[in-house]
Design a binder for these strands. Structure first.
Lengths: 220, 220
DNA sequence: TTTAAATTTAATGATTTCTTAATGATTTTC
DNA sequence: GAAAATCATTAAGAAATCATTAAATTTAAA
């Protein structure tokens, strides 16, 4: 996963920002075209996108739209001071922030840090002794790291994101395995069992992942 | 190697800064022209350059460019308050810091110290019994120098720079081999094995470079 | 050019995760 | 309380992924 994806066709600006961000220990990737930015995003994902509105191939508006189609990745838009028109205002409205060229690199970094800080709260779900970190895919119980498999993590994530809600087996299965999977619904119960083994204090008497008879499961 | 190279044509200011910095035990050299500054840098190198933007011969922008062409030497730019225009903003973007005349000498020294400190922290990463020095490309384990190959060093660097984060195999591969490499992803696992052989206490049970199943590797 | 080191490839072995299927336990319905 | 439905548990095997090894290739050094 990339921390910050920079879509900017001016080499100097691009290198400059990259240097500063790497100095702050962010993992940075760059793309000089919108095409490349989208393909990088698709391949690796990103925690934040820094997007120059003037790219040679695709216009900024389409890129924003495509980036936001699935995930809700934060976007900072880079514009020129002379740019302001109605269409741009529309884009900025959908962006998390924007900055005008020429800009002070310190201000840009402050903006980035601010966004990460605000996002953190959303990407880390804490409940009781369980802490789930969606960004880096880790789970801790009482502060001790617990290794979950991919399926177990997905299962826990969906359950915790919907605390108090009863989720049907069919719903859980479709979200994790996909609706066209050839696996049996049964395999879900096995994974529930494995997950309980790892996160419940007494797996024989589960308090966190509760079975709702005839319906499914609920995180409480 | 010069600690601080001052490029400044006003004699009084130059002497003032020099005195203060020498009092702090820095090795200082001065140049009253851009020409002389560049030749001094070429001849001896410098850990930091203090650059007045208004020099009689070469303009500040060209000097910045030339200094940064090879090395990534930090530059602090000295400007006059009336200077601010777009071109200057471009230069400041490339500088590590700047200060406006007239300035408080204490603030300047604090800025210099800050840059040295940040550089050091960035270039030397220490964790447990492993110490990685990016500047000179050396690695020690329990104070004993360990010889790593180029690929092994890069791998260790990226992992340590991202402590606690799981880095996907694809990401690691692209950072080290480049996205257009023709090598197989598989070769990464072989290098992981070699690296573990050199830095883990028990390579059969790796504690530093941890495998995250289905995802990649993590330094912890 | 020769030699050594570093890197890559490919094949095999080991481990982990996932799935299935069978059996046992629990809850609901009648 | 018995039957039916649903869920839990277990264990075994399949599939996916990672580790290891050795040989081939490339690169760098002497």
């Amino acid at each position: 996963m990339i921390d910050i994806l920079i879509a900017e066709d001016h080499k100097e600006i691009c290198e400059l920002i990259t240097d500063f961000l790497r100095a702050e220990n962010y993992i940075v990737s760059t793309a000089e075209t919108g095409e490349k930015a989208l393909s990088l995003y698709e391949k690796y994902g990103a925690r934040l996108v820094l997007l120059d509105i003037h790219l040679p191939d695709i216009d900024g508006f389409s890129i924003c739209e495509k980036l936001r189609r699935n995930d809700n990745v934060p976007i900072i838009i880079i514009t020129a001071r002379t740019d302001r028109d109605d269409k741009l205002n529309g884009i900025l409205l959908g962006a998390d922030d924007y900055i005008e060229k020429p800009f002070d690199i310190e201000i840009l970094i402050a903006k980035i840090k601010g966004i990460f800080k605000r996002r953190l709260a959303r990407d880390i779900i804490s409940d009781g002794d369980i802490l789930l970190n969606i960004s880096d895919g880790t789970v801790t119980k009482n502060g001790i790291q617990t290794e979950l498999s991919a399926k177990e993590f997905e299962l826990l994530k969906i359950l915790m994101q919907n605390k108090g809600q009863t989720l049907t087996k069919e719903f859980l299965f479709n979200r994790i395995w996909g609706s066209d999977s050839e696996s049996e619904l049964q395999t879900l119960t096995v994974h529930i069992k494995y997950l309980r083994e790892k996160i419940e204090n007494d797996p024989k008497d589960p308090q966190k992942i509760v079975t709702v008879w005839g319906k499914g499961y609920r995180w409480s």
